[in-house]
């Protein structure tokens, strides 16, 4: 079985996003960019499936700007076999919407015929939590979101999902789209030899236009603003003072 893993280039999770003073968005110029942390977990899971003989080939895909090549090289260094970059914008500040990304991924799936698409449950930039579900819908496939455990057996997969009340386990028919949550695994670091090897692995480039997908946004960004800041509080010297303060406020 072939496994397709979409990966997104996003602001590094340790960086604090800064809103541009003109309200046009978040400043991404000269900011460290990395693979979306959830997508790293998806890449890792695909590699583990290959290690236990459930997957033959891992194809990493990224949709975005040319610089997403670096993100794909990271996936290749972790262990993906080859990569496809779909260039959909030349501006690092343009976020391709999940619906357009899902349409591009559908075109890639039609071409590559994977049995499983493993993707992160959400990207830490737009926090939309949508692409996997949308791709599954467009393909008419089954979906299992927020996976914390995955086992593939023949033509089905059993997935434990992190939900509001606890955990839910479902069985989905393959082909399926599975979106992964934090507790599924701990992604490996790429070793230096593997980083070197990754430079020689195949990386195909296409454009959204090659795939016939219109990436024009459906949402117009009116403005981007800073959230309301919290008022600075006070430090209390001991538990007694804390209790007194909370009682004074009628909180306890």
């Amino acid at each position: 079985m072939k496994v397709l893993v979409p990966v997104k280039r996003v602001i590094d999770y340790n960086m604090k996003a800064k809103v541009k003073s003109d309200g046009s968005g978040v400043d991404l110029a000269n900011v460290k960019m990395s693979m979306n942390p959830f997508d790293e977990i998806a890449v890792e899971e695909a590699i583990r499936l290959r290690e236990v003989g459930k997957a033959e080939e891992i194809v990493a895909v990224s949709v975005g700007v040319k610089q997403a090549q670096e993100t794909l090289r990271t996936a290749l260094a972790m262990g993906a076999d080859r990569a496809i970059l779909v260039i959909a914008s030349d501006d690092v500040h343009t976020d391709i919407e999940p619906l357009a990304v899902a349409k591009i991924l559908k075109a890639i799936v039609d071409e590559q015929q994977p049995g499983l698409v493993l993707c992160g449950k959400q990207a830490i930039d737009n926090d939309m939590n949508a692409t996997g579900q949308m791709l599954s819908a467009l393909l008419g496939w089954s979906q299992a979101t927020f996976a914390s455990e995955l086992s593939v057996d023949g033509d089905s997969a059993v997935v434990t999902r992190e939900v509001d009340g606890g955990l839910q386990t479902i069985k989905v028919k393959i082909p399926a789209v599975v979106t992964v949550d934090l507790r599924l695994n701990e992604p490996r670091y790429a070793s230096l030899p593997n980083i070197m090897k990754a430079k020689k692995k195949p990386l195909d480039e296409k454009t959204a236009a090659d795939l016939g997908v219109d990436v024009a946004p459906r949402l117009e960004i009116v403005k981007t603003s800073e959230p309301a800041a919290r008022q600075a509080g006070e430090m209390v010297p001991d538990v007694d003072t804390l209790v007194a303060k909370l009682k004074e406020k009628g909180l306890v």
């Binding site: 602001i11 996003a17 930039d125 949402l219 960004i221 603003s225 959230p227």
Partner: peptide, 29 residues
Amino acid sequence: MVLSDVSGVVDASTFERPIYAGNAIQTVK
């Protein structure tokens, strides 16, 4: 498109939602 986690309704087509872990609030139409 879907609009996830909307935190404010401006009008019938315009909504506010947090992005970047709530470090920015985006108004989208």
